[in-house]
Amino acid sequence: MIISIASGKGGTGKTTVATNLCASLDADLMLLDCDVEEPNAHLFLNPNITEEKKVNAPVPKVDLSLCTRCKKCMEICRYGAIAVAGKAVVTFPELCHSCGGCMVVCPEKAITETDRFIGTVETGSLGLPEGASFGQGLLDIGQVMAPPVIKQVRQLEGQKKLTIIDAPPGTSCPVIAAMKGTDFVLLVTEPTPFGLHDLTLAVEAVKLLDIPCGLVINRAGLGNDGVNNYAQKENIPILLEIPFDKRIASAYSKGELLVRALPEYKEIFKGLYTSIEALVNRKGAA
């Protein structure tokens, strides 16, 4: 089973939920941090990284001796990543989405692929739970193409019975890349108007992908009940409410797992997993 943990915006406690869920289970599992712009699960889990792999994305390279400056490549590129300028053809690798469109349309076959380094995937093991494995992607500084790195991280899926994915915040392509094809999306939100706004966007994305989802409300008791009402209206089960608690905030700021600071949470996270399992099985049976 693959569970992705997402949130409409950053800072809602997504990583707290992912890391503590992971540390509370005895299952045969792996945690994949797909928040490649700012992976931080490792701060709480202290994995032992044993392997590092580079991720490259293909970008076009033009052979000017073959090129007739017909501009077809420039016309097809939606990202402004290739341009004919007088006698030159300019490429902008940092804007390129590696779609291959320019190569396909070039009538002179003047365009070939060249690799551009965009990030790394690291793998290793976790001490808690014992035997669990860990993977994370790291987008190189200045790069904007997160999805290829996320896809590389997700290649690791399936080595364990349970995969927990810490998805990037937001609702754009990187999040979709992290949630797509997972069995369940756990959405983490705050009970505030901002939280609700971003949650509705995230729910739209999850619905498009047709994945069952459930909600964790973090810092419950702080805002209003807008999120609860919304969940009820949309028929999204609230699986856990984590109250606002200074001890939780303090543990987080020290990079300490919540289940270590407040061991009673271990059973709570186990219960969360049981609820998810039940929802996934119900969907499977339906």
């Binding site: 590129c77 939606r78 990202y79 402004g80 341009a83 004919v84 300028a85 007088g86 902008f92």
Partner: peptide, 16 residues
Amino acid sequence: NAFKGAGITAASAVCD
């Protein structure tokens, strides 16, 4: 009103 790459397209036109 181009979505992206307006500067690049305009630059190309100027070169032309």
